[in-house]
């Protein structure tokens, strides 16, 4: 890893203009995963003085600054209540407090890490990403977006919904990356099911979601069928951590468990 210069931005516009000046300039979030990518950076642009480390709650949403740390978000009382704690749980399983005090929400979202526990859970909620200078898009649209993206993520807006959430990280030890992540959220608008670390990145299981949300009553056989649709329609693969078949078996079991927990609890 090589960083030639460092600049603490005084405004978003200054950061944005610097980013456009040179393709080797880069914004830093927490910098927690930077060593993994061994980048060669001309000027590292830091947003830490731009008051993006706040969580602001309104009646209908939680506005989370991009520089909020994972630990800050995990222990925020409103986040702890959301979906009865499943978002906080998805953050608490990420290494130790020493790491969670460094890694930021912005870095996690922009990094689109396939192994991200948090993104799997967050994807089940209605979330809008706000970029500088003037773009907004859903989290799902951003995760599916291919190609370079020069705008600067400033906030994520979580639109509040009452409901129950379930999150499960499957890993050999607490310090290892997930073999599979599963999240289920149920609100008055219906069910959302998200699968991450497939080993591909987190995605919503749309066919299974459409199926279960079309049912008048949730029975054991409906839950079985929903989990079958998940493993038939979501793409799984093999990696050193686990085979495709193993991931499918895990997904089937934990989707069932998740739906039961948010339905019958």
């Amino acid at each position: 890893m090589e960083i030639k210069n460092y600049h603490k931005a005084q405004s978003l516009d200054e950061a944005y203009q610097m980013l456009l000046q040179n393709p080797k300039n880069a914004i830093i979030g927490g910098g927690a995963w930077m060593k993994l990518s061994s980048p060669s950076i001309e000027t590292l642009i830091d947003l830490k003085d731009l008051q993006l480390d706040q969580i602001i709650e309104t009646q209908s949403s939680l506005e989370v600054g991009a520089m909020v740390t994972l630990q800050q978000l995990e222990t925020n009382p409103s986040i702890m209540k959301l979906g009865q704690g499943f978002i906080s749980k998805s953050l608490s399983v990420i290494l130790g407090a020493g790491f969670r005090n460094i890694a930021t929400i912005g870095g996690t979202v922009v990094g689109k890490y396939a192994f991200s526990d948090f993104l799997t859970a967050l994807l089940t909620l209605p979330v809008t990403l706000v970029f500088y200078p003037h773009k907004e898009m859903s989290l799902e649209a951003f995760l599916n977006h291919k190609g370079k993206f020069n705008d600067i993520l400033t906030h994520i807006i979580i639109h509040k919904q009452d409901g129950l959430g379930f999150f499960k990280k499957v890993a050999l030890t607490p310090l290892e990356l997930a073999i599979l992540n599963v999240a289920v959220f149920k609100s008055a608008q219906g069910y959302q099911i998200s699968i991450g670390s497939r080993p591909g990145g987190a995605i919503l299981a749309h066919e299974a979601i459409d199926y279960i949300n079309a049912q008048k009553e949730i029975t054991e056989s409906i839950i079985d069928q929903t989990s079958e649709i998940v493993i038939e329609t979501v793409k799984f693969g093999s990696s050193k951590a686990g085979s495709e078949d193993y991931r499918k078996a895990l997904a089937k079991a934990y989707v069932k468990r998740g739906i039961k927990e948010v339905t019958f609890k």
């Binding site: 830093i28 630990q71 407090a97 020493g98 790491f99 005090n101």
Partner: peptide, 17 residues
């Protein structure tokens, strides 16, 4: 760092003015 535990192998010194 400001009373919170962090991994010093992951914090760039230049950022902690």
């Amino acid at each position: 760092l400001d009373g919170k535990p962090v991994l010093s192998c992951t914090v760039l010194t230049i950022r902690i003015e």
